[in-house]
Amino acid sequence: MTPPAAAQRSRPGRVALPLAIAAFVAWFAADAARASFTLENLVMVAPAAAIAFVTCAILAVQAWRGPEPDTAEPAPLGPVLAMLALLAGLVLLMEEVGFDVGVLLFLIAATWLLGERRPLVLVGYALPFTVLAVLGLQAILPFPLETLVLRLP
């Protein structure tokens, strides 16, 4: 029987995850073995890698053959990738532009992405939240928080 078109299209996607995990475990095991090829160093690494390879092989074959009924959860990937990109952008820029500016811009962009289009609501939510979160954290932390505008007296 021919698998449905959707299943055929997503086949490489389903196989990619077990293969990526296998590749990561192989790299880690090789790195650990390079560091020291002794029982003490590999006592957990070697069995974990062996089990991972066998399990990855089983799962890759299963994924290639067809989708499992319990894992079918179609979801639009675009908004999730956009949110992930916003988060990554925040992490990259937070120390450059300051935590306050970074958080404010992230909140406005993320809320807009999730469907809020009213400018007053966007700013009215993001601004007080940023002030509270950043000043609150500054008060709690024993080390400095890079900010552009908000600073505790």
Partner: peptide, 14 residues
């Protein structure tokens, strides 16, 4: 959710 998700993500990140 449009306010909850960004708020939780920011709090978690901080």
């Amino acid at each position: 959710v449009r306010f909850l998700v960004p708020s939780v993500l920011v709090l978690a990140l901080l």
